[in-house]
Amino acid sequence: MSSIHTNRSAMTALATLRQIDAQMETTMRRLSTGLRVNDASDNAAYWSIATTLRSDIKAKGAVVDALGLSGAMTDIASAGMSQAVDLAAEIKAKLVLASEPGVDKTKINKELDELKAQLKNVAQSSSFNGQNWLYGSPEIISMPASIKDYGGFTSVGYIEVDKGQTTLIDPGNNSNGLLTKDRAVTTAGGSAEIFYLLGSGTAGTAKQITLDANTTADELSGMLQAIDDMERDLIDANALLGVKASGIERQEAFTRTLIEVSKKALGRLVDADMAEESTRLKALQTQKQLALQALSIANSQTDMILLLFR
């Protein structure tokens, strides 16, 4: 049935054309953004998951940055501690040399004073980003290491360093510093003595590790034991820093892996298949041309009706 009031063919062709235009708009948006799910209206469930993943990725990126700073601080502290170990070994060597008969102990003491000054410089200069793990008051240093999310509860995980185990000099309390604390020893002659290297000593009877012409062989043996004890503490402290540095490196690598895995998961959820979308666009363009042709044909039906009245 033909009608001049209602052109059903044209209406059908127009509806098809509108549907094709809507599909083309969706395809063009996917091609321009590279995303299959760009907002909640595309797929509410996937959009929600993707938004959470993006937030997690940003948080993990911040953790990687923090771990980088922590790693740099650990490296600085370890380098300073390694230098302190080397200087302690030099001091021990000088004390051994001073044990030789006929050696000028006062000249060796000048070298000891220089080595002590270098130790102070090492402790004070081993700082990074406003932190110094070798100088100052002992404290627990907490460094962000991970983002924990379980049971709907999010928290930050930390790697902790006990600065009390790495402090070389605490200007406020000599007993806290590895270089300033008292060392109780028993000399080769069997005497109980207390020695210290830097600072002023804690016990009133403590003697500084220093040389003069009157320094006895028994005192030298006590100083050597004190330096040996100090050196062991320095080595242990450097080992601790090495362990922390390795832990930070492993955690940083693991966090980077988590970020990459999260990005892959995000891509699977929301990324558009560009080859598929490009093929779909070409097909829709062809369909649109056919729909326009069909609409043109449908609109020409009224002209055919007019011919019947001629």
Rank of each mutant, 00 (worst) to 15 (best):
S2A: 15
S2T: 09
S3N: 12
T6Y: 12
A10N: 15
A13D: 12
A13E: 05
A15P: 00
Q19D: 04
Q23F: 06
M24W: 13
M24L: 14
E25C: 02
E25T: 14
T26W: 13
R29A: 15
G34T: 11
R36K: 09
S41G: 08
S41T: 11
N43P: 09
S55A: 15
I57H: 10
I57K: 00
A59Y: 07
A62W: 08
V63K: 09
A66R: 04
L69D: 11
S70E: 05
S70K: 04
T74L: 14
D75E: 11
A77T: 15
G80E: 01
I91L: 12
K92F: 03
K94D: 15
L97P: 06
N109C: 13
K110G: 06
E111T: 06
D113Q: 05
K116C: 05
N121S: 08
N121G: 08
S125F: 12
S125R: 02
F128A: 08
S137G: 11
I141E: 06
S146Q: 01
I147D: 00
K148D: 14
G151R: 00
G151I: 00
T154D: 09
D162T: 03
K163S: 03
Q165E: 00
P171F: 09
N173V: 12
N174F: 08
N174K: 13
N176Y: 06
D182M: 03
V185I: 00
V185N: 03
S191F: 08
S191N: 06
A192E: 00
E193M: 11
Y196K: 03
G201Y: 13
K207H: 00
L211R: 06
A217V: 14
D218Q: 03
D218K: 02
E219P: 02
L220P: 11
S221H: 00
G222I: 06
G222Y: 14
L224M: 10
A226E: 01
E231V: 07
R232C: 13
A237E: 01
A239W: 04
G242H: 04
G242A: 10
V243R: 15
V243P: 11
V243C: 05
V243W: 04
A245P: 07
I248F: 13
E249W: 07
E249T: 09
Q251R: 15
F254M: 12
E260C: 11
E276L: 15
E276Y: 12
A283E: 09
Q287M: 09
Q287N: 11
L292P: 04
Q293E: 05
L295Q: 08
S300C: 13
I305V: 13
I305W: 04
L306M: 14
L308C: 05
F309I: 13
